[in-house]
Design a protein around this nucleic acid. Structure first.
Lengths: 196, 196
DNA sequence: AGTGTTAGGAACCGTTCGGTCAAAAACACA
DNA sequence: TGTGTTTTTGACCGAACGGTTCCTAACACT
């Protein structure tokens, strides 16, 4: 028995995530966010508490959407060979740069670099997502001929290594390397990791 | 025939770099910078133009000091085996976390993530430094038994791959992984890259 | 000692920052 | 239709932002 919220929480979250993704936490002003979200100042504070609260909400939204999608790709049984899944995921980095000129990189990676060290809660959220990625890599490796015989310890080590490479490639993309260079780097990395 | 500058340019640059390193460009306010540099507002603007100019100067200072040190390590003929030099460099990442609790990561990597996409000049500076690191890795690889027989194309590919790994590990450190985890990841990565 | 030139310092600029608040509006329920 | 509850809205807040200006201080050179 009260006035219902007029805006869709998820879609405003999506817009806010875009702003934080592109400009970082400090670089994104409330005006930027409000304009993108198309809501009034008061509504934002009522719904998310404050700027940091909104940021945390967008981080979780990223987890729910992008990280989930990446993990689902790594676990996708429709692609029988786990190595193929890993290649697909890695190549999406080059593809983003190539097709959309997307230089935003990975929101998780960005947040780790510029916010995680200053905020325990953000750090925890980031580590949780990193963990999801690593477990996704483990699942993929278990379906890969080169790795399926390894024990879970070794599997985890290899998965973590792939995640390190994934983040390194994301940084590379932000540094302005060409899609072709990134693609070549992916190939080299996956070759040395014995994924392909 | 004029009043000489009272402060040492390099040492104020060092202090400013520390602030930008820890807080990022947007996160570092003029007050933060001035307090660390121990100079007055006017002196900063006289010497560096504006905040962005100071940032660029600190980037170049990082190049002159830290990047140069890393490259010199990779080229150090006193360590005959190039692989050893690479191991040393990588382990310095874990060491920073372990000994100093240093979560600032690599100033270059940080700058790439939060400033390079928005500023062509900063991007250029970052790419130049990335290039220096890669060439350093090439030199080290040339003194490594496992790689010295490769042609320079392959050598470059492997060097770039090591640099990607280096940046990925830097991100890991910022995400809050323990020094022991980072050390293990380094070991895995160098093993797979056939460096050790 | 006088002069030209530049650094230093602090007050000050308008703007924008993140955040608050009170009143109006829109619903659910009776 | 009236009432209670919650959302919306935009005006408003003090503080901090990056940047400028102007006057004084300190030197080099003659």
């Amino acid at each position: 028995m009260a006035r219902p919220r007029e805006f869709d929480l998820n879609s405003t979250l999506e817009q806010a995530m875009g702003v934080f993704w592109e400009k970082g936490f400090e670089g994104a002003s409330l005006s930027d966010l409000l304009e993108a979200m198309q809501i009034a100042r008061g509504s934002l504070y009522k719904a998310f508490g404050d700027k940091r609260g909104l940021f945390l909400a967008t981080l979780r939204h990223y987890d729910d959407t992008c990280i989930t999608a990446a993990v689902e790709l790594l676990c996708d049984k429709n692609i029988p060979d786990g190595s193929t899944r890993i290649v697909r995921l890695m190549e999406s980095i080059a593809l983003a740069v190539e097709v959309h000129g997307d230089r935003r990189g990975c929101f998780l990676c960005n947040s780790v670099v510029d916010q995680a060290p200053h905020d325990k809660e953000i750090e925890a959220e980031c580590k949780r997502m990193m963990g999801r990625m690593e477990r996704g890599f483990v699942v993929a490796l278990r379906s890969s001929d080169n790795f399926k015989h390894l024990n879970s310890n070794k599997l985890s080590e290899n998965a973590r290594n792939l995640n390190v490479t994934y983040n390194g490639l994301r940084v590379m993309a932000k540094a302005g390397y060409l899609a072709s260079e990134i693609r070549k780097a992916i190939h080299t990395a996956l070759l040395e990791a014995k994924v392909v």
